[in-house]
Deep mutational scan, measured.
Amino acid sequence: AQASVVANQLIPINTYLTLVMMRSEVVTPVGIPAEDIPRLVSMQVNRAVPLGTTLMPDMVKGYA
């Protein structure tokens, strides 16, 4: 199964992502692939992302 990117903490709206904020986990539904974690660093979330939430492409500015 493919691992997705999951929030490792509460990520406030407009926060620039860093490695410590994200982890990879096999979840349903599938979100942003874990292999894209390096690409996500320094990208901004466009909403608050609670701890344990799967990151979806529409949550990250400029990802989709």
Results as ranks from 00 to 15, higher is better:
residue 2 Q to M: 14
residue 20 V to T: 14
residue 30 V to C: 04
residue 17 L to M: 13
residue 47 R to K: 15
residue 28 T to A: 07
residue 51 L to V: 08
residue 35 E to W: 08
residue 43 M to H: 10
residue 11 I to K: 00
residue 30 V to M: 09
residue 59 M to E: 03
residue 50 P to K: 11
residue 46 N to A: 11
residue 39 R to T: 09
residue 24 S to Y: 05
residue 42 S to W: 06
residue 7 A to K: 00
residue 55 L to H: 01
residue 23 R to A: 05
residue 2 Q to R: 03
residue 22 M to K: 00
residue 53 T to E: 09
residue 62 G to M: 12
residue 58 D to Q: 11
residue 21 M to H: 15
residue 3 A to R: 04
residue 6 V to S: 03
residue 13 I to P: 14
residue 51 L to F: 13
residue 22 M to D: 00
residue 38 P to N: 15
residue 15 T to Y: 13
residue 1 A to G: 15
residue 62 G to V: 05
residue 10 L to I: 14
residue 63 Y to C: 03
residue 50 P to N: 08
residue 38 P to Q: 14
residue 56 M to L: 06
residue 48 A to L: 11
residue 33 P to D: 12
residue 57 P to Y: 06
residue 13 I to Y: 12
residue 24 S to T: 08
residue 57 P to F: 07
residue 38 P to I: 05
residue 30 V to H: 09
residue 55 L to V: 11
residue 29 P to E: 09
residue 46 N to D: 11
residue 56 M to E: 09
residue 37 I to K: 05
residue 28 T to C: 05
residue 44 Q to M: 14
residue 59 M to A: 07
residue 12 P to F: 09
residue 62 G to D: 07
residue 40 L to W: 01
residue 45 V to S: 13
residue 31 G to P: 01
residue 64 A to I: 12
residue 41 V to P: 03
residue 47 R to I: 08
residue 31 G to M: 03
residue 36 D to P: 00
residue 19 L to K: 10
residue 60 V to L: 14
residue 17 L to W: 01
residue 39 R to F: 14
residue 30 V to W: 08
residue 22 M to H: 00
residue 34 A to T: 06
residue 61 K to I: 14
residue 63 Y to V: 04
residue 27 V to W: 03
residue 3 A to W: 08
residue 57 P to A: 15
residue 29 P to N: 05
residue 25 E to L: 06
residue 43 M to L: 10
residue 11 I to D: 00
residue 59 M to T: 07
residue 42 S to R: 07
residue 29 P to T: 12
residue 50 P to L: 08
residue 20 V to H: 15
residue 17 L to Q: 00
residue 27 V to F: 02
residue 37 I to E: 03
residue 46 N to R: 09
residue 8 N to Q: 08
residue 14 N to L: 15
residue 38 P to D: 11
residue 14 N to F: 11
residue 1 A to P: 15
residue 33 P to I: 07
residue 16 Y to H: 14
residue 2 Q to F: 13
residue 61 K to D: 06
residue 54 T to K: 04
residue 31 G to R: 03
residue 15 T to K: 05
residue 9 Q to M: 15
residue 1 A to T: 15
residue 58 D to G: 14
residue 21 M to A: 05
residue 57 P to K: 06
residue 51 L to Q: 15
residue 15 T to R: 04
residue 23 R to L: 08
residue 38 P to K: 10
residue 18 T to N: 06
residue 6 V to F: 02
residue 25 E to R: 04
residue 4 S to K: 01
residue 59 M to K: 02
residue 17 L to N: 00
residue 10 L to R: 06
residue 56 M to I: 10
residue 7 A to G: 05
residue 8 N to E: 10
residue 57 P to C: 06
residue 57 P to T: 07
residue 16 Y to N: 06
residue 12 P to G: 12
residue 56 M to Y: 07
residue 34 A to M: 07
residue 58 D to H: 10
residue 18 T to D: 05
residue 32 I to D: 00
residue 23 R to C: 03
residue 29 P to S: 06
residue 16 Y to G: 12
residue 39 R to I: 13
residue 30 V to Q: 09
residue 42 S to D: 07
residue 24 S to I: 15
residue 49 V to H: 02
residue 48 A to N: 10
residue 19 L to P: 13
residue 9 Q to N: 10
residue 27 V to K: 06
residue 43 M to K: 06
residue 2 Q to N: 13
residue 33 P to L: 10
residue 35 E to N: 06
residue 40 L to K: 00
residue 25 E to Q: 10
residue 7 A to W: 02
residue 1 A to L: 15
residue 56 M to T: 10
residue 21 M to F: 10
residue 8 N to K: 12
residue 60 V to N: 01
residue 63 Y to N: 05
residue 46 N to F: 10
residue 17 L to I: 14
residue 14 N to H: 14
residue 44 Q to T: 07
residue 29 P to Y: 04
residue 46 N to S: 14
residue 27 V to Q: 13
residue 24 S to V: 09
residue 5 V to A: 13
residue 27 V to N: 03
residue 5 V to W: 02
residue 24 S to Q: 09
residue 62 G to S: 10
residue 14 N to R: 08
residue 18 T to I: 07
residue 50 P to H: 14
residue 5 V to D: 01
residue 16 Y to D: 04
residue 3 A to C: 05
residue 56 M to Q: 07
residue 50 P to D: 11
residue 45 V to T: 13
residue 35 E to A: 09
residue 47 R to D: 11
residue 6 V to R: 04
residue 19 L to Q: 08
residue 50 P to A: 14
residue 57 P to R: 13
residue 43 M to G: 05
residue 56 M to C: 04
residue 16 Y to K: 06
residue 56 M to S: 12
residue 47 R to C: 04
residue 47 R to N: 09
residue 60 V to D: 00
residue 60 V to Q: 00
residue 26 V to M: 12
residue 6 V to M: 06
residue 17 L to F: 03
residue 38 P to C: 05
residue 30 V to L: 11
residue 2 Q to P: 15
residue 63 Y to M: 04
residue 27 V to E: 02
residue 61 K to M: 07
residue 26 V to N: 12
residue 22 M to A: 00
residue 56 M to P: 01
residue 17 L to E: 00
residue 27 V to T: 13
residue 45 V to Y: 01
residue 3 A to P: 14
residue 8 N to R: 08
residue 56 M to H: 14
residue 18 T to A: 11
residue 47 R to F: 08
residue 16 Y to C: 04
residue 42 S to I: 04
residue 10 L to N: 12
residue 13 I to H: 14
residue 26 V to C: 04
residue 9 Q to T: 15
residue 16 Y to W: 12
residue 37 I to F: 04
residue 21 M to Y: 14
residue 41 V to F: 11
residue 27 V to C: 03
residue 35 E to G: 09
residue 64 A to W: 03
residue 18 T to R: 05
residue 45 V to E: 00
residue 44 Q to P: 05
residue 51 L to C: 03
residue 2 Q to C: 05
residue 36 D to H: 10
residue 5 V to F: 01
residue 40 L to C: 03
residue 41 V to M: 09
residue 25 E to T: 06
residue 53 T to P: 01
residue 9 Q to E: 12
residue 6 V to H: 02
residue 57 P to W: 09
residue 54 T to L: 05
residue 11 I to G: 01
